[in-house]
Design a protein around this nucleic acid. Sequence first.
DNA 1: TTGAATTAAAAAATCGATTTTGTTGAGATG
DNA 2: CATCTCAACAAAATCGATTTTTTAATTCAA
Lengths: 227, 227
Amino acid sequence: MTASPSTSRDMASSRIFETLKQDLIRGRFAAGEKLAISALKDHYRVGLSPLREALNRLAAYGLLEQVNQRGFRVPAMELEELDDIAGLRAQLECMALTQAFQAGDSEWESQVLAAHHRLRRADEHPEQVEEWEQAHLRFHRALLASCGSHWLLRFIEQLHDQFDRYRRLAPPNPAVRKALDRQHGELVELALSRDIRAARALLDDHIRLSHSVARGCCESPASDDDT
Amino acid sequence: MTASPSTSRDMASSRIFETLKQDLIRGRFAAGEKLAISALKDHYRVGLSPLREALNRLAAYGLLEQVNQRGFRVPAMELEELDDIAGLRAQLECMALTQAFQAGDSEWESQVLAAHHRLRRADEHPEQVEEWEQAHLRFHRALLASCGSHWLLRFIEQLHDQFDRYRRLAPPNPAVRKALDRQHGELVELALSRDIRAARALLDDHIRLSHSVARGCCESPASDDDT
DNA sequence: TTGAATTAAAAAATCGATTTTGTTGAGATG
DNA sequence: CATCTCAACAAAATCGATTTTTTAATTCAA
């Protein structure tokens, strides 16, 4: 983790927000589940006020739904919505990629290379899923970082989080995963050579391929795991 | 207002959220201003908990900034950001327009016509600014409503709110306003005839023109007005 | 037996008070 | 004279209790 230089310990509400956000993306809660607030309070060992503030933020972000006078629930997962998310993600990321290639300087190139290196390292430890997930997110972030549009990056991040919520539920597919990994390397090369056309096509393919994997999320009986 | 059939009175936090959202977009607070929470509490006559929940939602939505341990502040207004917002808005709305034209049925056509009619009616009462603003927002919403992408519409709405925050601060320009109004009518015609190419060009122009007006937000000494 | 009405239990939303943290300015120190 | 320290203050964040609303269970009448 590159962030938080010990000087800035943040509020309880921010901590619980991050924790809940990750748990929602990781699929720790069932889709459509109604969240029992006092149960969350006990489980995460936080007070009611910070917890409710975090829930409100998550609802505004789209990772929870707030129903009038009856609390919060985890959004349902529907293939139709996944298709929407993936399609829009492809369009927005291709848009950002073009701008990133046009505006990117050598500092950007370095960051992309560095992020890719960390991703490959994370690949070597398949047991540390969360490390890989973080490195993967950061690689895609680095690739588009120089696009110059704060709001575009913001929306892409939001879509990525939504997308991952589906993808993480889908059964892994080693063959496809290998192809996806290869594409990461190819994206780096195309970034360095500033081949916009080829890179757009590749990124579009990349998201499409990942999308096809994520679509498996609604089949398997969600074999649970981990900590 | 078409919503809320008396049966569903919503929570204090939702009410204060809507009120604050509107006040932020209308420019009732100075850009960069730090919000004094207890002052807000007194002014809006609400408790601390619902108020804080509303502030958290607004921060997640992008209409406020939350600073670590020192409360909330109104985001600064920068021309650079306005350009970002307007540019992205143009791209996303043109994207949505294309899809809306392809998927729109006769019900959609009716809604567009109806929304346009209300907008023209609102035009006749220049003193009721808020009525016009609402009708205007709803017209643009209706035009894209049939695009089929929940998330695209969501982002467009968010950008529209951000854009209006700048536009509302800019001095009015009756000549340009007239041109913009004319474009609304032309958009309706192009929608009915499904002329995607022309409509895209027109919508792009429309946003660009509105953008040029909004850019005046940083010059004038913000002569205040209304209620 | 069904179904509307009542009420008891549970959960969410809100309030008022407390704790924690950041800010300011007076006085001490170099 | 500038800078540092520390107390007093102000503001934000959090807690625990109360109020409001929903949900479920149960009763009573048709």
